[in-house]
Design a protein around this nucleic acid. Structure first.
Lengths: 208, 208
DNA sequence: GCTCAAGTGGAGGGAGCCTTCCGCTTGTCG
DNA sequence: CGACAAGCGGAAGGCTCCCTCCACTTGAGC
């Protein structure tokens, strides 16, 4: 009997090697092109046959899930790290800016994050904790007086969906556009007197 | 010989009828679902065969062009009408708000406007005139002191692309989200002291 | 070194898409 | 009314995609 890790049977070393190459290839390709890449293409880039790919990931959705699970973890880390910042407004700004930049650098992640595949991210618990942390961040920023009182944590979805709409020819151009967008948003989020309409949504899933 | 209108041979009356139904059906369907509708589906909803559709519109792109040409005209009208408003800031706000609402109400139009089909809108001249009018509007709003000096007319693309990213379950929910987004944008566009980074782009075409 | 389950690659099935082809129908004009 | 070009519907071609099947290979444990 082979070794066991976390309850899952250990793969043969060559199989593990192939699996790693698949994930790496998929990550790169999704980031560069988006989720509209054929499984055949991913397999080709990884130097394996499609059957090998499907043996590890029985569906395309499961591959997407695997590939972006840890990137979601990175997102959560950004939020949690920001909680250590003594300046609540700066922490808030950093979270918004860094999340948008991550999103802009990775087209596939944008799509996955906004759940083009509805159940693609079963890391719901982690996501929920991150959202809770962000809500705490929002509260502190409001108490500091820099963040407008009618900002709601759900507005982060608004920001991310809006940011997801930005696409330019190159990644750098996209990131530059994203920076300007974020700068405008942060302007608006600072305590200004007039008020935008209240929270309307119920936003569910988006794609692009 | 049949009558001639604008250099194009007149269609037979039944053919014209079918053509009208095709365009109407395509408009509705694109608006509701987006551009990812099969030609077969459009033909079915119009009550004609695919061949009839292809006789009028030899390619899907040509159909998209036809369907959205006049909606682009509507956009241009919004901008030109705003020039009559004596209050430059209000005119500016109206243009931004109305364009975003039109975009949010019509998913297909969003996609077509941001030129998923690169040459889909050969109405370039009209578009250019509208952009010029908007630039004039921006200038006036700046002179009135309400619009921040570092706003550039290209920022309208930023707004529209961002707005295009918003998708909710229902049209009304999407429009509501769009309203909040626009309110935030208009906050930011008012003369605030800190400055976002300068114009970076170079944005070319977007899809979602 | 032998055995065999685990692993592999490539062909191909089934579905959906855009587009074309072709034999039949119908409005239009003399 | 009669002739015929214009118009018509639906089948089918060609393409891509996700996914499955199956005969062959290879690493792991004795």
């Amino acid at each position: 009997m082979r070794g066991v890790t976390g309850g899952t049977t250990q793969l043969r070393v060559d199989a593990q090697h192939n699996r790693d190459r698949i994930v790496a290839s998929a990550r790169e390709t999704f980031a560069a092109v988006g989720l509209d890449v054929s499984m055949t293409e991913i397999a080709r880039r990884a130097g394996v046959g499609v059957a090998t790919l499907y043996r590890r990931f029985p569906t395309k959705e499961s591959l997407v899930t695997e590939v972006f699970a840890d990137q979601l973890t990175n997102c959560a880390a950004v939020v949690h790290d920001a909680l250590d910042d003594p300046d609540p407004w700066r922490a808030f700004c950093r979270v918004v800016g860094e999340l948008c930049e991550m999103q802009s650098r990775d087209r596939g992640f944008s799509a996955a994050f906004l759940s083009r595949f509805p159940n693609a991210l079963p890391v719901d618990e982690e996501r929920a904790r991150a959202e809770e942390a962000f809500a705490r961040l929002v509260l502190r920023a409001k108490e500091s007086g820099r963040l407008r009182p009618d900002f709601t944590p759900e507005d982060l979805n608004l920001v991310l969906m809006a940011n997801n709409g930005l696409v330019a020819d190159s990644v750098e151009a996209t990131v530059a556009a994203s920076r300007r967008l974020v700068a405008y948003f942060l302007q608006a989020f600072q305590a200004g007197d007039p008020l935008p309409p209240p929270v309307p949504l119920g936003l569910a899933d988006a794609l692009g």
